[in-house]
């Protein structure tokens, strides 16, 4: 494949984010093929990503402080947080499940927040090294980003199923809402971040 020695932006061209058409369009004009407003880079990508990432980080605190569900068996049981839920899975010997829930509910959202902050800072300071590594982190985030939804789906399934009166019940708690907000915010944050800025900032600053 023949390559040109430059980017679309430096050639005065814009790639449509929806239909991939490359046109010499002015900023914020509709794509001639699919009418999507065109921008050389996602507009205010850094500011938006910062805001969404910080909001996600902030809400991650109540998501972990508040319990997400209450399992009552034979009249016994108390509201449990995400981490307490993982701990009780380990106690009952369900190691693989504990791992899945821990990775989906703790490692993925926290990892996304840390990766986003690192990528944002690296673009701000114009880091010139670790480009491939940073792109790899960005791709990792794209691939595994959704998996934090597992806990939300799990709570809805368990609370619908376990309604056995005095024998056993599972009730959802407020933490689910906060955790849901964290998941949605991290997905939006990852989508507003423009990976092309990693390359731009590595080349622009001298």
């Amino acid at each position: 494949m023949a390559i040109l020695d430059l980017t679309a932006k430096s050639s005065g061209l814009i790639r449509c984010p929806v239909c991939a058409l490359v046109t010499p369009s002015p900023e914020n004009h509709p794509c001639p093929r699919c009418a999507t407003p065109l921008h050389a880079r996602k507009p205010s990508s850094l500011q938006k990503t910062w805001a969404l990432t910080m909001a996600a980080a902030l809400l991650y605190i109540p998501a972990n402080i508040f319990p997400i569900m209450t399992v009552v068996q034979m009249g016994q049981g108390e509201p449990k947080t995400i981490l307490a839920g993982v701990a009780s899975l380990i106690e009952t010997g369900m190691w693989p499940l504990a791992m899945i829930v821990f990775i989906a509910s703790v490692v993925v959202p926290l990892g996304k927040i840390v990766i986003l902050i690192y990528l944002l800072v690296s673009v701000h300071v114009g880091l010139k090294t670790y480009i491939k590594e940073r792109i790899a982190l960005y791709r990792l985030m794209e691939v595994f980003g959704h998996w934090s939804m597992v806990d939300i789906f799990l709570v809805t399934l368990l609370t619908t199923l376990v309604k056995m009166g005095a024998l056993a019940t599972i009730e959802p708690n407020r933490g689910v809402s906060f955790f849901g907000a964290v998941v949605v915010l991290t997905i939006f944050a990852a989508r507003t971040f423009d990976p092309r800025l990693i390359w731009d900032s590595a080349h622009d600053h001298g």
Partner: peptide, 8 residues
């Protein structure tokens, strides 16, 4: 879509 490099 990730780095904006142009290709023919």
């Amino acid at each position: 879509h990730e780095c904006d490099w142009l290709h023919r």
